[in-house]
Nucleic acid binder design. Structure first.
Lengths: 209, 209
DNA sequence: TACGGACTCACCCCTTTGGGTGAGTTTTTT
DNA sequence: AAAAAACTCACCCAAAGGGGTGAGTCCGTA
């Protein structure tokens, strides 16, 4: 019997999963959590075989919840279940220890299959997610352009993403405007964009909040 | 008996709703649709009392689906059920004829209540949605700043949101750069922002794709 | 017809931005 | 201790952005 913990703040989704999974003889839903915190707590207590984890939740998100579950219960396989693929949380959550990655548009049978696969030690990646991962390795492991920014540059980039001018950024960071300009130049070059507007768009399309 | 049609491309959500609603004596799920098109078709055929409609779907979205359902089956009450509140699709879908608006984080009991309310002719607005609607009326019906943009200005704004320079916008629209600058000035003034970067951010936070 | 709104373009002028280059200081790593 | 990376600031200069103003055309409507 595969013991499963559901973590999702959507009651309907939990009910749907629970209803479907209860029809599978070899799968047992041992508990449901409506938040990341609760999910971590239940995972530690119950040591389920598989955790079905939503990514977007109030409080600590699925990424942090996954990290904590992996820390406190390394035997738990975390299957991430989320709505969107464009979320740039794909890489972080995999780094956080997610074992499989599915989309919520998946058929119910797919999910049952992924649960059995996880219990058997086989990860499952939704095809589009797999494509992203492959692309990342193909293009060299440098990954996201913004990951090669220095901490200070990242800080400046976020302020650009808030629509701040160089002077405002200088005031906020208590440095000279000349220094800000240097950072901005380096940022534009590293991100491969032409101006601060494109950099701001980068921030928003990559959710660098 | 209240006859309900479910429209959602997430099989799990449909299952969860169907499972829960089947426990309610006065509610009957007469059909499920996994796309907007299918939902419209089934609504016409079955004339349900209430349609539970997801907003984000492949193909025609929930907004267009709602409009068509209302056109072809005016007696059907459409309850919109979506994940996010920041979606600026709230107003459009209400204009399209949505009767109630709930979030997917709602408790299942809330949904059953909303279904009964809809059948009785009472709309239900999730509190945060209600707040938005109220705010819109309080601030004068002018609503979103970008709605007072002219068609041409909106076109330019979208290009700003793509990170285009004035010259690139001029080339794309086959007009002079002086004209673009005029549009940009008017846009900044109407949106109440200081520069094109903030305008680009506006585009992305308001989903003006 | 007259009016207003939208779209177009122009001129003047100032500010901001961004590239290139150099260089000093601090922090971290080797 | 030496090397590398990060952070800081500076100067020069060209390009782009943005405010203000004026004005012509076209189109739909009162």
């Amino acid at each position: 019997m595969i013991r499963v913990l559901l973590v999702d703040d959507h009651e309907m989704v939990r009910m749907g999963l629970a209803a479907y999974l209860s029809t599978e003889d070899d799968i047992e839903v041992v508990a449901e959590a409506s938040s990341g915190e609760e999910g971590v707590k239940l995972a530690v207590e119950l040591k389920p075989d598989v955790v079905l984890m939503d990514l977007v939740m109030e409080g600590i998100g699925g990424v942090e919840a996954t990290r904590r579950v992996r820390e406190t219960c390394p035997s738990c396989k975390v299957i991430v279940l989320t709505s969107f693929i464009d979320d740039e949380k794909v890489y972080p959550v995999i780094e956080a220890g997610a074992f499989s990655y599915l989309l919520k548009t998946s058929r119910a049978a797919e999910i049952a299959r992924a649960i059995r696969a996880a219990a058997a030690g086989e990860p499952v990646l939704e095809s589009r997610v797999a494509g992203k991962i492959m692309a990342r390795f193909r293009h060299g492991q440098e990954a996201q352009p913004h990951e090669q920014l220095t901490p200070r540059e990242l800080e400046v980039l976020k302020l650009i993403g808030q629509g701040k001018s160089n002077q405002e950024i200088a005031d906020e960071l208590i440095i000279g405007i000349k220094t800000v300009k240097t950072h901005v130049s380096n940022i534009l070059s590293k991100l491969g964009v032409e101006d601060r507007t494109q950099a701001a768009i980068y921030v928003h399309t990559h959710n660098l909040d």
